[in-house]
């Protein structure tokens, strides 16, 4: 669906690249996550893919059609949710969606239904200047799906959302993928990426430093071990041990503790995406 080859971008033209030699492919109907801290170049890549920034060096194509040959009508197929919501603050939520729907020459969603989907039905007639950060984020997301896109760009879609609302938005994104929509998502939230993405790329200082499925990354960089907490012999204090289940001794010890009924908690010790990122870059995602 999306093919990116050797993408570079230099904002000031002084040889200081915000994005440097970035290449990746996004298969149709998948969710592709760009994971990295603020300033790592995630949004720059997204802006280059959507022509918000002019392409300087490298190739981007959609279904084999180069970006420079893409006509404005192509945007009938594209939805974009911005990190900064970019809403008409003097208009209500409903008016914002109606306006946006009017910009497309394809069938669009019912704005009231979409507002209901993102939990903003009650605030439909309030001016967006009165919305909280999370409400604006939800409205921006709602706007991005108004034209029933088959290509969805989401820039930090969970930013400012409470866990319940985030779960609702994640469910919609998953539904879109199931319906064949291709999603390109930037985030610095490892849980979102882990939960939703079919593939993730770690971006650091403008370069991709690792790229694979979340599962493969965790297997490659994590440990096949469990951390176990159990009550000691006299039933007083709790103790914990890390056991490597591919070792015969540890496996026997694990069985011994579980059969004795002393185990309180068991945690698998696979690496989180954040731990992998830290291991690769020496810095965190936030």
């Amino acid at each position: 669906m999306i093919s990116v080859k050797h993408l570079y971008h230099d904002y000031e033209g002084k040889g200081s690249f915000a994005v440097e030699d970035v290449s990746f492919d996004v298969p149709a109907g998948s969710i592709y996550g760009f994971l990295g801290p603020s300033g790592s170049g995630k949004s720059t890549v997204q802006n280059l893919l959507t022509k918000l920034l002019a392409l300087q060096k490298g190739d981007v194509s959609y279904e084999g059609v180069p970006l420079r040959d893409i006509r404005p009508d192509f945007f009938n197929r594209v939805g974009y949710s911005f990190e900064l919501p970019n809403l008409y603050t003097k208009l209500t939520g409903l008016e914002n969606l109606k306006l946006h729907a009017g910009l497309f020459s394809v069938p669009t969603e019912d704005p009231e239904r979409v507002l209901d989907m993102v939990g903003l039905a009650d605030a439909a007639h309030r001016k967006t200047s009165q919305y909280s950060k999370g409400m604006k984020q939800r409205l921006s997301f709602a706007r991005s799906i108004m034209n029933r896109p088959d290509l969805l760009f989401l820039d930090e879609p969970m930013s400012g959302l409470d866990p319940t609302t985030a779960a609702r938005i994640k469910a919609i994104i998953a539904e879109k993928r199931a319906a064949g929509v291709t999603v390109f998502m930037t985030t610095h939230n490892m849980y979102t990426a882990d939960e939703l993405c079919d593939q993730v790329a770690f971006l650091n200082e403008g370069r991709i430093i690792a790229m694979d499925t979340p599962r493969n990354l965790k297997l490659a960089y994590g440990e096949k071990s469990v951390k176990i907490e159990y009550a000691d012999d006299d039933g007083g204090a709790f103790r914990s041990e890390t056991l490597f289940l591919d070792r015969e001794d540890d496996r026997r010890r694990f069985m011994q503790l579980t059969e004795a009924g002393r185990v309180e908690t068991v945690h698998s010790q696979e690496a989180t995406l954040e731990q992998i990122f830290m291991r690769l870059t020496g810095r965190g995602l936030s």
Partner: peptide
């Protein structure tokens, strides 16, 4: 101030 032109640019409006 609202940044709406940025959102407009990723539509077919032109």
């Amino acid at each position: 101030q609202d940044g709406t032109i940025r959102a407009y640019r990723v539509t077919p409006g032109g």
